[in-house]
Amino acid sequence: MKTLTLLTASLFVVSLAACGQEAPAETGSAKMHMEMTGSDTMDHSAHDMPDQIMGHGTGIVKSRGSNGDFLTIDHGPIDGIGMGAMTMGFETMGSVDVSAFAEGDPVAFMVKKGRDNSYRITNICNTQVEGTDCLASMLDH
């Protein structure tokens, strides 16, 4: 009976592999799956964007992540990377601190494409507080 059970289990695993699916994880070695939430990065691999790594744009802050390292921005087209207008979330890069930004703040910002193909904020300013030309000083890169 043990041989029949082992043979059946082996055939099940082989049939899953043939279908391109993973076999169920063994107890104690569960595989983590990441699901998209409101504060996770977005996959833009399906967007038709040129392979540029830096860009800049303006928008309105829609929300800020609780750790102060993530902003959701309703932005216009982002020059330099060919991204159209949309609302999306951006993580920050390096020492960028977005904890002072709140919902409704008008911003100018720069982004850089990471190795994981997501865009992160490299510099940001509040255009209502720092003036509409605050982006100009950031463009001297």
Rank of each mutant, 00 (worst) to 15 (best):
Q52G: 11
K62Q: 14
K112N: 06
A136Q: 07
N123Y: 04
F70M: 08
E91H: 15
M83L: 08
T132S: 14
M42T: 06
D79P: 04
D43G: 03
N117E: 03
P50E: 13
G89W: 00
H141W: 13
D51Y: 08
K112C: 03
M54C: 10
V61L: 10
G131A: 07
G68V: 06
S95V: 11
I121E: 00
H47A: 13
M110W: 01
F90I: 03
D69Y: 09
M34N: 13
T92F: 07
A85N: 10
V107A: 04
T127M: 10
I78G: 00
R120V: 05
K112M: 09
G131S: 08
L139Y: 09
G68L: 06
M34I: 12
V98M: 09
I78K: 00
D43F: 03
I121H: 01
D140W: 10
T127R: 07
F101N: 04
A85Q: 11
G84V: 06
D140N: 15
K113N: 01
G104F: 03
M110H: 01
M34S: 13
G65E: 05
V61C: 09
T58E: 15
A46E: 10
H56Y: 15
S137K: 14
S66P: 12
E91Q: 13
V96M: 07
S99Q: 09
R115Q: 14
T58C: 10
E130S: 09
F70T: 02
S137R: 13
D43Y: 04
P77F: 00
I124F: 02
F101G: 02
G59P: 05
T132N: 13
F101A: 03
H141G: 12
D105K: 04
G59A: 08
L71R: 01
M32E: 14
D116P: 02
M93S: 14
M93G: 08
F109K: 01
I53C: 10
G104T: 04
G38D: 11
K113G: 00
M42R: 04
N126F: 05
M34Q: 14
M36Q: 15
G38F: 09
T41Q: 11
G38V: 06
L71Q: 02
V107L: 07
D97W: 08
T41S: 11
Q128D: 13
S66A: 15
Q52D: 14
G114S: 09
T87P: 05
I73V: 10
V107C: 06
E35N: 14
G57Y: 02
E103Y: 05
F70N: 02
D97S: 09
M54F: 13
F101H: 05
G57I: 02
H44E: 07
G94L: 06
M36D: 13
G114Q: 12
T72W: 02
